[in-house]
């Protein structure tokens, strides 16, 4: 579209759009970087790196406790003849 405009105007528009794109990229990168550092600091303050034994066990509960296998092939359906 820019090639239909007077050359100087086209160049100015192109420079302006590049400027905004660069501003966008750098501010986005800065935002993402600061967010990650803030998240790490927040996690440390919140005690996320303490008592890791409990953290590793949080996927289990009384319904699916440690020691219980929670997945197997649906063989029993076939064996009973009720499945298909």
């Amino acid at each position: 579209m820019a090639h239909n405009l007077p050359p100087q105007l086209g160049e100015a528009l192109s420079r302006a759009s590049m400027f905004f794109v660069f501003i966008f990229i750098w501010s986005f990168a800065l935002f993402a970087g600061i967010t990650m550092v803030w998240l790490l600091a927040w996690a440390v303050r919140r005690g996320e790196f303490q008592n890791l034994r409990d953290a590793s066990r949080m996927i289990f509960d009384d319904g699916e406790p440690i020691g219980e296998v929670t997945d197997r092939f649906p063989e029993s359906i076939k064996a009973s003849g009720e499945g298909r």
């Binding site: 319904g63 929670t70 649906p74 064996a79």
Partner: peptide
């Protein structure tokens, strides 16, 4: 259409009902 002869995957829900 399926009926469970021996539900393999929902033991937790059985336990839940018991609890």
């Amino acid at each position: 259409k399926l009926t469970f002869a021996d539900p393999t995957l929902f033991t937790s829900e059985r336990n839940w009902d018991a609890l």
